[in-house]
């Protein structure tokens, strides 16, 4: 299991990386944490002819916070996110999901940007960024643009990034007041990709009624999915157990899992129902706690 030959370019600046990508186009790949790309190359499932190593580009790292959002450099590694004070204080959902990704050694290398650009539909982070209404900043030699998470994930292992574009930054808007979040997944072993994973956010109005709910899924289709109808069904009410059951049923219908060696489609759908209920219950409880209603 040795990779096929390729040319290795250790980019010293973002401009150099972007220029190299223009020059080599689709045959070239950025190398971030390498935790998805290198295994694929060792199996010779991926055989890029050029690798542009972006690991030295400090401008792609780091977590910043402004009044509206936290902004995460694409090269920020999972372990840095796990230890980050902004993330811990303001994006607990991320903190809850990170330990489900692989194992410590892989989290020491893997990057958020690499993960999102890889766009594995079973991966936790795409579903989270989608649920949190994130935006992604793409850069190319000729300019940059923001892409909404909704538009970023196009299919299995496919994103809206053009061949000359690099994912530079991820922006996660601050959660409104009185919001509770929860992430849960079922995997065969801890650290395995999810057979089904659900992220839920519940925002309450000052009277304790549901103002907004978002439900995001990984392992539920060819890309991360939102169950918008299910989420909307809770808005305006007090969110009773039977409301949650009804929403879970709607969510089960909204998703489109394809089954895999470890989970039949029906089992995945079943899990989606169970986890929708559980994450909603927990997010609701947390929202009530943060609103002082608990």
């Amino acid at each position: 299991m040795k990779p096929a030959p390729f040319r290795y370019i250790a980019a010293r600046s973002l401009d150099e990386a972007l220029a190299a990508k223009v020059q080599h186009g689709e045959d070239a790949r950025f190398l971030a944490g390498g935790q998805s790309l290198v295994p694929a190359m060792n199996f010779r499932l991926a055989q890029p002819t050029v690798l542009i190593d972006i690991n030295a580009l400090a401008e792609l790292g780091g977590v910043r916070r402004d009044a509206h959002a936290i902004r995460i450099g694409a090269l920020t590694r999972y372990y840095q996110l796990e230890a980050d004070a902004h993330v811990a204080a303001h994006q607990k959902l991320l903190g809850e999901a990170l330990p489900h990704i692989a194992h410590p050694q892989i989290r020491n290398r893997g990057t958020l940007g690499g993960n999102l650009a890889h766009a594995d539909p079973a991966s936790e982070m795409p579903a989270l960024v989608l649920t949190l209404g994130g935006r992604l900043r793409a850069k190319s030699a000729t300019g940059e643009r923001w892409i909404a998470a909704d538009d970023f994930f196009v299919g299995a292992l496919t994103t809206a990034l053009a061949p000359d574009e690099l994912l530079a930054e991820i922006e996660l808007p601050n959660l409104p007041a009185r919001t509770g979040t929860c992430f849960m997944e079922v995997a065969r072993r801890r650290g395995d990709f999810a057979l089904m994973g659900v992220a839920a956010t519940v925002t309450l109005d000052p009277d304790g009624r549901c103002l907004e709910t978002r439900l995001g899924y990984c392992g539920a289709g060819d890309r991360p999915l939102l169950a918008t109808e299910a989420a909307a069904s809770l808005v305006g009410g007090n969110v009773t157990a039977s409301d949650i059951d009804a929403a879970a049923t709607l969510a089960q219908r909204a998703i489109d899992p394809s089954g895999n060696q470890h989970a039949a489609i029906g089992y995945q759908r079943h899990l989606a129902g169970v986890l929708t209920r559980r994450t909603l219950q927990s997010a609701l409880l947390r929202a009530r706690q943060s609103a002082g209603h608990a």
Binding site: I265, G266, H270
Partner: peptide
Amino acid sequence: LSPNRLWELLNPDAAALGEASPS
């Protein structure tokens, strides 16, 4: 056994409806 297999054994009807695992 596995969680999925247990689900199939407990839900033979759903499993038979083409929702079973591909293998």
